[in-house]
């Protein structure tokens, strides 16, 4: 599904290149649950951003679903966002002026999904995440864990084939974190959604089935998680 070939990312400052990523080559298949781990500043988030096409690599090629997407115009990229990719953020990034319901509805509106279909999908998600009672609340009226649930529900609303999560539990207490990670695991196993997460926590990484260890921009280790 994802094919990264010799990806490099650096910033040139006064002739000195400071590398964020070097020679990253890897393949991620449909249905995998990959955790990207490493110390602060290792380039984890940059790698995830490149996979999510939020940043372009300085060098190397990137194929998404067999299509070269290394440089892609905005319109095509947004088409991919609409149909294939869901994002989950550490700081949740819900839109403060929208209710829970509206936050989940927003991607469906961009995807131009009919109103009855929208209503049923949102009802389904609210039900599944047990947040039906909260649907008319605004994000600041929810706890962090609940906000992240809404964030995930929003990411799932457009029925993506892959979810990219940047430290999804970074701002959460451990009980809530476990809940979120279990949810991811369930989504991966039952719905076959590919999940790529960046995490600091060894424990969270074990929810997935593959771990990429990154240090100083280089993939040091690529291990399968054996349950």
């Amino acid at each position: 599904m994802i094919q990264l070939n010799n990806i490099e990312k650096y910033y040139a400052n006064k002739g000195v290149k400071s590398y964020i990523l070097r020679h990253v080559t890897t393949t991620i298949k449909q249905g995998e649950f990959v955790s990207i781990m490493g110390p602060s500043g290792a380039g984890k988030s940059t790698l995830l951003n490149i996979i999510g096409m939020l940043e372009e690599p300085t060098y190397g090629t990137y194929e998404f679903l067999g299509e070269d997407v290394t440089t892609l115009n905005e319109r095509k990229r947004i088409e991919l966002y609409r149909n294939h990719i869901g994002f989950v953020f550490q700081a949740y990034h819900l839109i403060d002026e929208m209710t829970v319901y509206e936050n989940i509805e927003a991607p469906l509106l961009y995807k131009k999904i009919g109103s009855s279909e929208r209503a049923s999908r949102i009802a389904d998600l609210l039900d599944r995440f047990n947040i039906v009672a909260k649907k008319d609340l605004f994000p600041n009226q929810l706890s962090g864990g609940q906000q992240q649930l809404v964030g995930i529900a929003r990411a799932l609303a457009a029925q993506p084939s892959i979810i990219l999560a940047d430290e999804p539990t970074g701002n959460l207490q451990s009980a809530q974190a476990d809940e979120i990670m279990n949810l991811f695991k369930k989504l991966n196993q039952e719905d076959g959604i590919t999940i790529i997460q960046v995490t600091h926590s060894e424990k969270n990484a074990t929810y997935g089935n593959r771990i990429l260890h990154i240090a100083d921009g280089v993939v040091k280790d690529d291990v399968k998680v054996i349950v």
Partner: peptide, 16 residues
């Protein structure tokens, strides 16, 4: 800014 960023990754065109 956050709203813009989020909407963009959810599939909003700039023109929208």
């Amino acid at each position: 800014a956050k709203e813009v960023g989020v909407k963009k990754v959810m599939g909003a065109y700039r023109s929208q």
